[in-house]
Design a protein around this nucleic acid. Structure first.
Lengths: 237, 237
DNA sequence: TGAAACAAAACGAATGTCCGTTTTGTTTGT
DNA sequence: ACAAACAAAACGGACATTCGTTTTGTTTCA
């Protein structure tokens, strides 16, 4: 994914093929899209505050400064609004992770991402991530979006590792996809801890996390630049 | 905590000081407790299926095979039922983690715990864990229970690490509480990944996880038994 | 002892509220 | 001018909780 309006993960299962297609035309597409975004923003804040299922449509309308009638022009159900939130959020994550491929230094790029998502990102967004994952375990539409992005991200990680393997930076017996899964696990763990315990001192933890990940990534002598065909050192682990 | 009926974490914030205490029948305390447990079991299954907020009291009653009236004898609100579930579940986790102190081999004990919670434990319990964490971010009563247990667990980990430090098994510059946080992070990450992606191949991942944790724990020459006063090796990192 | 009297416990239909959605007019943009 | 966009109010269904009644079990008393 490069910048642009296409989502990273194809819109298979285009959100909710509800009987009645929302009536759509007549406002210029840009303002149309802008209003959808505006509503999504309001919904995001509201959902983060109360959770998907304790948040009322009225509350979202209030937050967005519009009436229910207006809202239903853009989203034909609460369900669809939820799916819209999830889709937008996940696609953003996916495109950010996809950037990793271009990073000159994977490790510091990862650290930076971790820092971004756990420190700079406002609290309500972090809480929403958790809510989304939770919803994905029960709501089929959400689950499908969630898992498709998740799969994409892991494949992406795996490709990065595969490339690292070619540079001899990886223990040969380690499977790339398994490593990708481990990195995802650590990332998700970081999210989760941060959401659940807002006092978490991320700054203290990150260096250790980075050190851990680096043991997966750099069995090769450091400071020696990619001598292409892996020169394994004797010092095991 | 040793075996017994006391919860690991004290019941500060005794669940829901709601205006009206449940009517509490004149049943012998044992059967009273037994029925509460029975209801909690049913609620646990129901909540896991639908989530706390989409699950109706009727559904729980159906699952428990009792009437709404009967349920309200034992729990005076849905809120209290939720808190009851959370309290029971978290205390069980806490007492299991507390066992780690007695484990002869920390690493394999951790691996075993991980395996237990991600493979043997039935799916619905795993999903419930996620739901609980999520609820903890918004519901104050639940949050209090969750965080008190969480704190307890991390302190426990930290103590274990502190002991390991005395045996020279830890990098001196690593703070025990930070290490404890990292281990919690990995554990929670494992939960989360497993709940969100039921296809996760835990068996493939665990060895790598164990290897990672072991790098925190064994910078000292392996096979050399605890020579009590840490003999630091030169090989930094 | 045995059945009448009482109490505890459970039942389940009824209640009132809340909330997603629809309907009905009015306004606005093109 | 006309349909799209909107606001406001109202609808209808669902849900947590209540409460009058029934069932079950235990005590009382003759």
């Amino acid at each position: 994914m490069f910048q642009g309006e296409q989502p990273v993960v194809a819109n298979q299962a285009r959100v909710a093929q509800c009987g009645k297609p929302p009536v759509m035309p007549k406002l210029t597409p840009e303002t149309q899209h802008a209003r959808r975004e505006r509503i999504l923003d309001a919904a995001e804040r509201s959902f983060a505050r109360a959770g998907f299922h304790r948040c009322t449509m009225q509350e979202i309308c209030r937050e967005a400064g519009i009436s229910p009638g207006a809202l239903y022009v853009y989203f034909s159900s609460k369900e669809e609004l939820i799916a819209g939130i999830v889709e937008r959020d996940r696609n953003k994550l996916a495109s950010e992770l996809a950037e990793l491929k271009n990073a000159p230094d994977l490790l510091s790029a990862l650290a930076k991402l971790g820092e971004h998502y756990t420190i700079e990102e406002p609290l309500y967004k972090r809480v929403l991530c958790i809510e989304i994952g939770c919803e994905a375990t029960r709501n089929p539409a959400v689950g499908e979006i969630y898992r498709s992005v998740d799969t994409f991200c892991r494949q992406n990680f795996a490709q990065v590792f595969e490339r690292a393997r070619e540079d001899g930076k990886i223990e040969p017996q380690d499977d790339s996809r398994t490593l990708a899964e481990v990195v995802s696990l650590i990332g998700d763990g970081l999210f989760w801890r941060r959401a659940v315990n807002p006092d978490l001192d991320v700054q203290a933890i990150l260096p250790i996390i980075v050190r851990l990940v680096s043991t997966l990534l750099n069995p090769v002598e450091p400071s020696v630049q990619p001598a292409s065909k892996a020169a394994k050192t004797e010092a095991a682990v």
